[in-house]
């Protein structure tokens, strides 16, 4: 196996203004209080763990009134130093974009925009694997965004329909581990999406319902280290059998807003060469 070519440099945003101030996914409940000190400590431990594993972390300045800015995975999609700004579905998160764009523009990235009217929530819904971006749609991103996104990223984008509103972003259902393996949550995709992933991932590890709902797939991979919000024994045994070091970082304060380890990070070093993996077979009546 060959380790992922990306995942050594991340953008993160300290949780100074984090909280559950609105409800835009089934996990968010405004009556649940966030323990900010605890959130700060958990976030700090995540940073330390990533750095220990060999990654560097860039910081985005937190902004009052933008509690979800902490989930930098949704800031946009990056490939080869080009940054495609997100277009958020919910108005609560739309003001984040100006701050994201300012950071990327100030750090040497080429900033590009999706056409107006095409919603896409960044790396939260677009993860690279074997030369292709898989892109979740329906809950937050539009299926129609994948064409323009592909053109802007210079890489193929294959949209996958997310059918479980609890798993509203792709990064809650899919975690690339190396060049052949990934944690996958087929239960969160429609039958077409399952076929697409099946054709793309040579060695998938399929998560059970409770495992995917525990945000198992929302993990960050740095070389051979998998940083997970939770690691059920069955998943841990498989990852260790494959030679990964598993580190669990408790981020339960952030789970209150529906985000785990991956949501708190955005890989800045993605550089997909533009060669796609094999397309799925067109069986079961899908062929025309």
């Amino acid at each position: 196996m060959t380790a992922l070519t990306w995942g050594r440099r991340f953008l993160m945003c300290p949780p100074e203004h984090f909280g559950v101030l609105y409800e835009i996914n089934p996990w968010m409940h405004r009556e649940v209080d966030v323990d900010l000190d605890r959130a700060r400590a958990q976030w700090g431990e995540l940073v330390a763990t990533l750095v220990d594993a060999g990654a560097t972390v860039d910081l985005l300045e937190p902004q009052p009134g933008l509690p979800d800015l902490v989930f930098t995975a949704n800031a946009g999609t990056v490939n080869h130093g080009r940054y495609v700004a997100s277009r958020f579905r919910h108005p609560n998160r739309q003001p984040e974009v100006d701050h994201d764009v300012a950071w990327f523009a100030g750090h040497g990235f080429e900033v590009v925009d999706l056409p107006e009217g095409t919603g896409h929530e960044g790396a939260g819904d677009a993860l690279p694997f074997r030369g292709v971006f898989l892109s979740g749609y329906r809950s937050r991103s539009d299926a129609g965004a994948h064409g323009p996104l592909s053109a802007l990223l210079g890489a193929p984008v294959r949209p996958i329909e997310l059918v479980d509103p609890r798993l509203y972003h792709l990064d809650l259902t899919f975690c690339p581990l190396d060049d052949r393996r990934a944690l996958v949550a087929p239960g969160a995709w429609d039958s077409y999406g399952r076929k697409v992933v099946e054709a793309l991932v040579p060695e998938p590890f399929a998560l059970e319902t409770d495992e995917m709902l525990a945000f198992c797939a929302n993990s960050v991979v740095v070389g051979h280290t998998v940083v997970m919000p939770v690691c059920p024994p069955r998943v841990g045994r498989q990852l260790e059998a494959w030679g990964f070091d598993v580190v669990v970082v408790t981020v339960d304060e952030f789970l209150k807003a529906g985000g785990g380890c991956r949501c708190l990070t955005l890989a800045l070093d993605v550089a997909i060469p533009g060669a796609a993996g094999p397309p799925p077979s067109m069986g079961n009546g899908a062929a025309r």
């Binding site: 064409g147 193929p156 949209p159 697409v196 799925p280």
Partner: peptide
């Protein structure tokens, strides 16, 4: 877009 490979 990639409407063939994605089965869209």
């Amino acid at each position: 877009g990639h409407i063939i490979d994605s089965l869209i």
